[in-house]
């Protein structure tokens, strides 16, 4: 097992026993962390497994003092990516803002007090990025549609434009989100469910 004083050690990526030890040590709490955000135990398990695999496949030796850090960030990023897809699939994500304490505890554990952005804020930023790339009129139409829940016809009336143009703007916005968040299947109407992100 990996002891306290052994944190500066490196272990070989072929050392199966050391892998077992690290997996045993970190899997339970990282899986719990992922589950809090993705709300699905199987997805959470996959996320943590993939984090281990990606580190072991990349490195020939594992530096134990930075390993924790990498592992946690990998899990966190995978959670955010999954949540982005959920956003596209119009899943309700209000719960991710309820995990303030959890995020603080994990920050202290894995990042040694280094700053950490909340997952909700990170997701908000990602959405903002896509939104800022939209043409002004497209953005305006999209906001009215998702934030205020207006029908296409109502938007057309309010802005004094053709309903066909409203549909085109919304379709453009959806395409941008799908391209950025990597989901071809989802229908993007998430703002009604996730309004505070706008």
């Amino acid at each position: 097992m990996i002891q306290n004083q052994g944190k500066n050690r490196t272990i070989s990526a072929t050392d199966e026993k050391a892998f077992d030890g690290l997996f045993r040590q970190y899997f339970p709490r990282l899986e719990a962390y992922a589950r809090k955000f993705v709300l699905d135990a199987n997805v959470a398990q996959d996320i943590v497994q993939e984090a281990f695999i990606s580190i072991w496949e990349k490195e020939t030796t594992i530096q134990l003092n930075t390993f924790e850090n990498f592992l946690f960030i990998s899990v966190r990023n995978a959670c955010i990516n999954y949540l982005k897809k959920q956003v596209v699939e119009q899943k309700k994500l209000e719960h991710i803002k309820e995990n303030l304490w959890v995020e603080e505890i994990y920050r202290i554990d894995f990042l040694k007090d280094a700053p950490l952005k909340l997952i909700a804020d990170e997701l908000q930023d990602e959405i903002d990025k896509v939104m800022s790339d939209l043409p002004p009129r497209c953005k305006e139409v999209f906001k009215l549609s998702r934030e205020e829940g207006l029908k296409n016809r109502e938007i057309a009336e309010r802005l004094g434009i053709n309903i066909k143009n409203v549909e085109r703007h919304i379709s453009t916005a959806l395409q941008k989100f799908r391209a950025k968040f990597g989901n071809e299947l989802g229908v993007l109407v998430f703002f009604a469910l996730f309004p505070s992100l706008l």
């Binding site: 339970p28 497994q49 281990f52 695999i53």
Partner: peptide
């Protein structure tokens, strides 16, 4: 860590290891 569901944990460990070792 104390693992409640040993079966589930062991299968996660085995699955991960099967891809690495």
């Amino acid at each position: 860590p104390e693992v409640k569901d040993q079966v589930r944990f062991n299968s996660a460990l085995a699955k991960t290891k099967s891809r690495l070792f």
